[in-house]
Amino acid sequence: MSGEVLLRVEDLRVYFYTYAGVVKAVDGIDLEVYRGESFALVGETGCGKSTVARAVLRLIPPPGRIVSGRVFFEGRDLLSLPEKELRAIRGADIAYICQDPSSALDPLYTCGYQISETIVSHQGVVKWRDAWMYALKLLKQVAIPEAEKRIKNYPHELSGGMKQRVVISMSIANRPKLLIADEPTTALDVTIQAQIMDLIMELKKLYNTTLLLITHNLGLVAEYCDRVAVMYLGKIVEVADVYTLFEKPLHPYTQGLLKAIPNPLKRVERLYSIPGMIPSPVNLPPGCRFRPRCQFAKDICAREEPPMIEVEPNHYVACWMYAKR
């Protein structure tokens, strides 16, 4: 699958300068997201997947810093854009949904006010009354029951699932071209997770939005996404379309990860478990970062970092098993 590139990330590096030393949260990643697709960035805790999302919006808090790289959105480099122009893009062309809906909503204002505010600040709607009516329409669209009543509620009066629906309604208020969802359902129960993911996909279709889903849940990826990038310790190790990745994973980490998740529809006597632990991001192993836990490691893996190569069309992997040297 290919098409027009909506978002292109080139050699992005985000380092956190902590007391512990320099944490290379994102260390030179490249990726392309095509218009209209849903792209997943998956990885375990601390692999840097959320940092990528925030770097795209230039929302890296200190002591973090974007050290290098370029992020092209519709051809414009977001990282060199003046703050004012970037602000016009944030929340309008690119919307962001975070893991914790309670922290995304201001407890002091009603849901209706907060949705209206996004509309007024981006669309040049002059009358608050119009914005309010539009907000009501949005709440109905995200299937909030009794929207007329809920619009006047404060965030704390709503359940976690409802709050996430409000956040989603805010994010689609300006018909964004790119929707970045950072673990949007991690804090929610399975049935609510399914409802929310269905909603996101429905709205994506309706508004012809592109979705960048950040998650640790490979099940969600299989269920909802078109293409996947797998991250490990600040690097992308494999990129492929979903069917290929789940059927024929190439990188040993992806293989291990897929064998480590229990599948409820299969009887497995014993799960595979990747040996060892994720090393501290401060003292990264030289060469390939997965080498200390990899059962196929060769000499070269300890010496040199593997390059990203296209093993078959649109299937990229960073591993010395597939690189010629």
């Binding site: 399975v190 399914a194 409820p264």
Partner: peptide, 15 residues
């Protein structure tokens, strides 16, 4: 409902 809500890590079955 619960069973059909859990994401299955296999795109073919999942869809």
């Amino acid at each position: 409902v619960l069973l059909s809500s859990i994401p299955i890590p296999d795109p073919k079955i999942a869809r």
